[in-house]
Design a protein around this nucleic acid. Sequence first.
DNA 1: GGAGACGAGATTGTATACATAATTGTGCTT
DNA 2: AAGCACAATTATGTATACAATCTCGTCTCC
Lengths: 228, 228
Amino acid sequence: MNHMQMPPWTVETVATDLERAIHEHRLPPGTKLGEDELGEVYGISRTLVRAALQSLGHRRLVEHRRNRGAFVAQPTVREAREVFEARALLEPRTARSAAERSTPESMAILRAHIRDEHAALAAGEHGKALHLSGQFHIEIARMADQATIEAFISELVARSSLIIALYWQRRAAMCESHAHNALITAFENKDGTLAEDLMKQHLLDLVTSLDLRNITSMPGSLREALAR
Amino acid sequence: MNHMQMPPWTVETVATDLERAIHEHRLPPGTKLGEDELGEVYGISRTLVRAALQSLGHRRLVEHRRNRGAFVAQPTVREAREVFEARALLEPRTARSAAERSTPESMAILRAHIRDEHAALAAGEHGKALHLSGQFHIEIARMADQATIEAFISELVARSSLIIALYWQRRAAMCESHAHNALITAFENKDGTLAEDLMKQHLLDLVTSLDLRNITSMPGSLREALAR
DNA sequence: GGAGACGAGATTGTATACATAATTGTGCTT
DNA sequence: AAGCACAATTATGTATACAATCTCGTCTCC
């Protein structure tokens, strides 16, 4: 529709564009991603759209239903728990490693993320703020110089944004930036142990801010929508 | 060529078949995977072959070079280290969890893996033995009932088989089965702490059995093949 | 009037055709 | 004879055409 810069859309750029839209909750969980429709939006054929959707499917950001098409994924409560279990295994140790390797350049990048996040939040762009908040975690993995783990964390962060869209309970305010600020100070002091502990606590806080009682759960929104 | 059972080849079955061939070192790192060629082998069109190759590409089992095609991946020394770093983060804790949840059924599956692995080794089928050895690790993740982590470990195990193909130094014999047997006894006793320690040591042993000095490294096999 | 079956429309699954880039072989020039 | 340029071939990148399947509206029958 818009896309005013109109880059030469490739499979990768389309996948990235869609991922960002999902990450920013512009495409909520369950949204149908029709091939013809997307092809028209980006001005490419279904071939490339399918490749992009398959790519997102591998990252569990979209679910493919046979002969039904692609939909923005709707992680179950179980999957949500699994995602944060995996993050708990990967991220604290990665934060420790990142703290021990922190450089002025990487610190500047982190601080820029925080700044942009605050600006987005102030401008009411919650989606963008959430995206940047996720990028913060990915940047830490990049600081640790572990591309493989970074790829895993990137996937987990993206899925987390879907989980937040589904299970976030609004009473917990956006206190994330505090946790991120604390992490930054740990990085500044190259205090790996502190960074590891802070990250562990940060992830715990995130989980407890979700409503993961599997009562309504699966059908997505129907039961919840009709609850009265 | 053969494929005597000839299932109705789908994208998934072709990807699985290729992955197994790579895992068993029938397709060594660097092998060109031509689309027309594969299409003829499986009796399907390039469309499905491309989808399968893209799937393997996302798991880092094949590398895509623009306008050049797909090749069985050749992990660098750096990537090799990263893969085992990631495994060190994921697998010990997963083994602990698996031990605490071990059931007679899951133990039977594990023992069957060991038995088949020994049989394959006795029959000189090193590829099949290596494949089963990897499946053992994946089965543990399945026991832990963590599908997300299982998917990560599955990818890491597959990449490990490529790393072994490239960097294995033969002087270290196939002592793996001993480690796996020790793990089984820990599982039998539901000793999570022991299982975690054993897995940690097992992965360390694996890394030290590799030659990860980045001397010859990258070009793959050409330089090594012509070294004299 | 409601339940079930049938068929039209729409969407995905697969194959093929065309476009484009890389490789290789050939021949000319020096 | 060696080196470069160009053309033919081969393989991948992309689009389109056809086939199969599902959805949904309508019609019929009870």
